[in-house]
Amino acid sequence: MSELTIERSFPHPPEHVFAFVTEPANLVKWWGPEGTSLREHALDLSRPGPWSSTLVNAEGGLHKMSGEVVAVDAPRSVEFTWGWHDDEDARGHESRVRFEVHPEGVDGSLFRLIHTGLPSDEIAENHVRGWTSALVSLERLLN
């Protein structure tokens, strides 16, 4: 198992940041990297309960993921489970995500994302990264 931590400082108070990373109307503004678009979704991380989302990338590939919000401590932290779905909609390996919002300076926040329980294969990700461009061209050739 491996884990991933990403931190970002934002010039906004914790309440504002927390609202942006948990409320449905705000989540849809940023959920998914540039170049993807959000399809069906039930994105509400502000209360315990299920969530799900489907992203489509520029090549039309679908990425579906879902989970369950397990703990909310506004405006400090939220924790939810996470799993990708495969082509047959079978939900794969489950991992866990925690968002933390800490006050920083005057009216600023430190946002910390901790994704734990990731499959160990992803540790090798950097070694395999060189594959990506080759594989993208493979995929282009196929389509």
């Binding site: 090549e59 082509d87 990506t132």
Partner: peptide
């Protein structure tokens, strides 16, 4: 193709948009 969207890519890409949206 599905695999190449890793967790790291997902979050880093998303958080860039979060910063911009806020």
């Amino acid at each position: 193709g599905a695999w190449t969207l890793s967790h790291r890519d997902f979050w880093q890409g998303s958080l860039e948009r979060l910063g911009a949206a806020m």
